[in-house]
Every structure is written in structure tokens, then in C-alpha cells.
Design a protein around this nucleic acid. Structure first.
Lengths: 341, 341
DNA sequence: AAAAGTTACGAAAACGGTTTCGTGTTGATA
DNA sequence: TATCAACACGAAACCGTTTTCGTAACTTTT
């Protein structure tokens, strides 16, 4: 066991001062070539590496980013996280993850914990509870302290900061129009309770598309599911005694559940009923038929969020740049669960 | 914008020394009640929180854990991670994640980066490349420096440290015996290349079970798939012109791919061919029929790994405790893809 | 009233770096 | 030979804590 070596150790061993060692290792021309060579050789031999903590304290920056997400066992968030990690790493940053578990308190506690010096900035997607409570004082306080925040996907208008979102509304219109162009008229929507701004936008898009094509909205064709339960029965019920020829689902789980139920009733997907889901995850790729889905490009969202944050943290401008919102274009990936002309 | 307040700020403002402030906030009885009250009130008002970095430097411990996993967009690893995060958080630790992306170099670089003071210990699952190269010098060096490491799932015998693994071999035997007890005789195995020790153990279990029941091993019934490609064609080919009545797959993707292909051939699952896969993820739950799977209890593995690490880091024993290996019992979850008596 | 013990606080070192500034020694210049 | 710049290095401050130790100013004991 050989403990980590410090500047002090090197200085003592070579009988020079700590400052000389520090300068030598940074190749300062204040130090003679001879001394530099001695010190460098010694440092290399003992595998000297500067202590990150000491550097953080000195530089008042940790090169750590805090990422707070509601869930990690979730395809979309993991892809976003991968994008964040990738970009951050390429810029020399490390990523500390906290999972809010959809809880307001956990979100607050974790962020306060990290804000006391552990990180230089946050990337965050709001927990369900936070969105429900509409309480963002914790975010405001952090911004007040000068800690930059980037919100993605589950954002709020209440907070002025950089944001990365999907064009949920527009892509929903596209999806519904994809149904319509194949002749569908009775288009259903399966969504979650509205306090998620993303669900809201998707519903808006759905309604807008119907309106654009003079299709009357039928509230019976909209199913709003509660959060976190097994919804199989509700969905089964929903499809009974209804004429439906297409379904837009706000996630791929609903989509694949629909598909099972529909097929179980003896209908054919896509010929009798077409399906589109959000999230181009593993379920969509391995179902049969494969699901037509809306790819959210989580990795790109993550990269963009990380870039926003790092740019802001590293900006030396006296005047802070205005906050930006980046809209990522979702893509409709046409596969076997829809009729694609 | 109100920047973070420090002990020094409080001291100057209240005209006392820094040490007095520090002691007062820790409720030291060296300080008079009057002074303590003044300082506490002031600190509370300005929302004073000690700086984590300064504490880390002083205490020589960061309360950060480094987690290095090959992939994050992967059900098993995310569940393990959730377990780690949960337990670590409950003990006041934060988690820094690095994704090795199955690359040896990334694994090495990330770990060396973090080892310079950023973390107190590692939890790690080896990258594919590392297992292939069989080069563990980076781990040995870290252990040499006194940094504790816990390995999970993708481990190696070469390194002496705490480990958390699944009883892959035994559960594979159980799975195959579940097939046999339903009358299956022609049992196939679909696995990945062998440098994953987990695949190896699963194959051993498969072979052992056949042996136990005097079933002759047929190499044609074992399909070894390369890593990272679309294997649909290989699997389709595999099933052609063969008598197979059961398939054990080392992951749920293979399992669900098999099921699609089998059903596409017009066979019934489970009546004609039964299927069992590893990983009780989203695919297994939402396929039809639902997959009989081997639940790996990732969350429990994660909790155990975190507990091992934190116990070791916090142990004050002079003599280090011997390294332990915790075997997590997998569970066979019987669902629709097998005949369950 | 002198000695001893409390009380309540401050000074300073330490953690491991970086960086500014000062300074003794050299060699070149006037 | 006195002056000055260049060179090569060290001292010390600083980042924000904790903690040991020293010490005035009282209070208590004898």
C-alpha cells in the first residue's frame, strides 16, 4: 500500500520548496531545467497527481455537474443521461446523479446537499410532485446564489434559465396527421394526468391536428391514466364498445399495452387499428409488429443541456448571456404499427 | 444574487474569530450562550451551510462514491444503480457515475480521474474490453493506494476485493429443470461470447442441468451470438430445421426476439416452444405472452454493493476485515412463456 | 491576598494545492 | 567598481473548514 504522494512530500524529498515543485510540474520557466527535470522524474516515478479537492477549493470550481432526474430505470432519462455524461466527460467534467424519485422533498434535499460546494451547476428534470405543487423556491434560491441550472423535458415557465425541450406539440400533430393520411378518423389519445407539461403539450397537438382536419373531438376517445398503477384493465375497458381506428400514446408502455389488448381482441395492428407511441425505446423495437414511435433523441437533449450548462459556467462575460431554450425536433419513426404510404 | 456565506464572513460581521463561529455552530460549550445565540441566529438568517469541499479537504473524505458501469441504457445496470444510489443517499453519500461504454481505456481514465480525491471508493462492473484483455492493473493500483473497490456482476477472480454476484449457475439449472419438468427434451441455449463470466456461468448451469437429467448435450442447440449487432437473422437461421422445444436466453432481448421469430414461424409459445430469459425487465413484462424470466434483483445487488463499500470505508478497525462475496439469489418468475405445473 | 481553577475566546496549524511577491546570487553594463 | 537586470528559488497568502493550544479575565479556594 503506497498512499498518494503530495507536493509537500516531493518538496521534502528533493529538498526544495513546495512552490518550486508546483511550478516545476507546471513547466514554469521560473525554474531551471535541471531542477524541473529532477522534480518531474521524481513525480512521474511516484505517479503524482494533483488532488482534485484541493484544486476545487483553490479554484472555487469542482468540475462536477449535478444531474437530478425523477427516475433512472426509464429509457428516456437514461438516454438523456448518457448524452450529458458523454458531453460533460469530453469537457473534463464529472457527473453526480441524484434521483428524486418523483418526490419534491428528495429533489430539494439532494439539490441543497450538492449546492454546498459539490457541484458547479445543475441539469434537472422536475419531479412529478414538484410540478404538482408548483413550488420552485429551491430553484430560485440556487439561481440567486449564482448556481446555473438547465432544465430539460419537464420544465416550468416560472424559472428563468436555460432549457431544452422537445417539440411535443408539433410532433403530436405530425403523428395524428400520419394517422389521418392513412384514412383514420376515430383517433384516440391515451395520456397521463396533466400536471406533466409534456403530456399537456402532446394533448394540445392531438387536439390541434383534429381541428386542422375538421374532425370533431370526442372526449370518449381520450383516456387519462393515473400515475404508477397497472393500467391494463382501464385500457381494456377503454377499447370496449368503441369505434377506434388509431391510438396515440404518450409513452411506449401504453402503446405496447394497447397493442397487446387490441391483438387479444382479435383485431389487426395496423390494419384495423394503428398505434403510435412516444419514446423509441426497447419495447418499440422488439414488439411485433414493431411500433411506429416518436423518437425523442434523449442523447441529443442531454448533450445540449450539458453544453448549455458548461458554456454558461465557463463564460467569462461580465454581462450574463440571456437564457435560451433549445427545442429538439422529435422524429416520427414509421414502423409496422401504422400504415405508411 | 447573494453569494454563499462563509465562516469568515460571519466572523467579520459579528466581530468574533472564525474559530468562535465554528465552535458556536457546533454547539461547543466553550462558547457562552449569548455568543452562540447571536452567531446561530445570524447563520440561520443568512442560510449558512458549511462548504463540502473544504470539509472534504479537512476530513480527507469526500462522502462521494464512484460508480463505473459499462452502460446505462440497460435495465439491469439501471436497477443496480438505483439500489446503490438509494443506499448511498440514506448514508449521506453522493454518487458520481462514469460510463465505461464497454471500453477499457474509458474505464481506466475515468477511474484515475476520480481517484485523485474525488471519491472515497468505487463500485464497478467490468467493461467487456477489460474482461477480454484480462488486464486489471488499474484496479490493483487503486487498491494499493488504499481506495476500496466493490465489484458486482461482471467480476474477476484476479482482484481481491468485496464482490456481489448472482448465482447464475444455480438459477440456470433451475430454469432448465423447469423446462424439463414440463416435458421438454430439446433445450436450446442462446448466449453471448464467453468472455463475460456471467454468460459462462449460465452456460455451465445449462450443461450441468442437462447432465443431471441424462440429456445429451447437442452443440447445435447452443447459439453464441456476437456482441452489439442485430442478431435477428442469426436467430432465425438457428431455429430453422431444428427440433427445439425450449430455449434459455441469457438476456431478455434474445428471449423476446426468439419469441417473435417462433411465433412468426407459426409455433405457439409456450405449447410448442417454451422460453425463459434473464433479466426481469420491461420487455418481459409487456410481451405476449409475458416472459418467464430470471429476476436478477439488481436493486438488491446495488444495495449490497453500496453497503459493502460504505461499511469498509467507515470501518475503524486497525486490521482490515477479510473480503467477502455476497451471492444474490435470482428468482425464476413463472409467466406465460413456459408451461408451469 | 495569593494560588488555583473556570470561563470564553482567539491564534495558528492543518488539509493540498496555486500564485504573487520578495530576495539572494549571478553576469552584464556603465 | 557600482548599478542593474536576469535567473532561480522560497515565503506566504489564500481557498473554507476543524481543532488544538494558549491566555486574558474572572471566580473560587485556602
Amino acid at each position: 500500500m503506497k498512499p498518494k504522494i503530495t507536493l509537500k512530500d516531493i518538496a521534502k524529498e528533493l529538498d526544495v520548496s513546495i512552490s518550486t515543485v508546483s511550478k516545476a510540474l507546471k513547466n514554469s520557466k521560473e525554474i531551471s531545467k535541471d531542477t524541473k527535470d529532477r522534480i518531474k522524474a521524481f513525480a512521474k516515478f511516484y505517479n503524482y497527481r494533483p488532488n482534485n479537492i484541493a484544486l476545487s477549493l483553490k479554484n472555487k470550481r469542482t468540475k462536477n455537474i449535478g444531474v437530478v432526474i425523477p427516475d433512472i430505470v426509464h429509457h428516456f432519462f437514461t438516454t438523456v443521461f448518457r448524452g450529458i455524461e458523454k458531453y460533460a466527460n469530453s469537457k473534463g467534467y464529472n457527473v453526480i446523479v441524484c434521483i428524486s424519485d418523483e418526490s419534491f422533498d428528495k429533489e430539494v434535499i439532494n439539490m441543497e446537499m450538492l449546492a454546498n460546494g459539490s457541484i458547479d451547476g445543475f441539469i434537472l428534470s422536475l419531479s412529478a410532485e414538484t410540478q404538482l405543487k408548483n413550488d420552485f423556491t429551491h430553484l430560485k434560491e440556487l439561481l440567486d446564489q449564482g448556481i446555473p441550472i438547465v432544465l430539460f423535458d419537464r420544465i416550468t415557465e416560472e424559472i428563468d434559465c436555460d432549457k431544452v425541450v422537445l417539440n411535443d406539440r408539433v410532433i403530436s400533430i405530425d403523428a395524428v396527421e400520419h394517422f389521418i393520411s392513412a384514412g383514420s378518423k376515430k383517433i384516440a389519445l391515451i395520456t397521463t394526468e396533466d400536471y406533466f407539461n409534456v403530456s399537456e403539450s402532446r394533448k394540445e397537438g392531438y387536439l390541434q391536428a383534429l381541428k386542422n382536419h375538421n374532425i370533431k373531438v370526442d372526449d370518449n376517445l381520450i383516456l387519462t391514466l393515473p400515475h404508477g398503477l397497472d393500467n391494463t384493465n382501464l385500457i381494456t375497458e377503454f377499447f370496449q364498445n368503441k369505434e377506434i381506428d388509431a391510438v396515440l400514446c404518450v409513452n411506449e408502455i401504453f402503446a405496447v399495452q394497447c397493442m397487446s389488448i387490441i391483438q387479444h381482441f382479435g383485431y389487426n395492428v395496423p390494419n384495423d387499428i394503428s398505434i403510435i407511441g412516444f419514446t423509441d425505446g426497447i419495447l418499440s423495437k422488439y414488439s411485433s409488429p414493431k411500433l411506429t414511435t416518436i423518437a425523442q433523441h434523449g442523447e441529443i437533449m442531454g448533450e445540449n443541456a450539458a453544453k448549455f450548462l458548461i458554456d454558461r459556467m465557463e463564460s467569462t462575460e461580465i454581462e450574463d448571456a440571456p437564457f435560451k431554450t433549445k427545442v429538439i425536433d422529435a422524429t416520427l419513426i414509421k414502423r409496422g404499427s401504422t400504415i405508411n404510404k
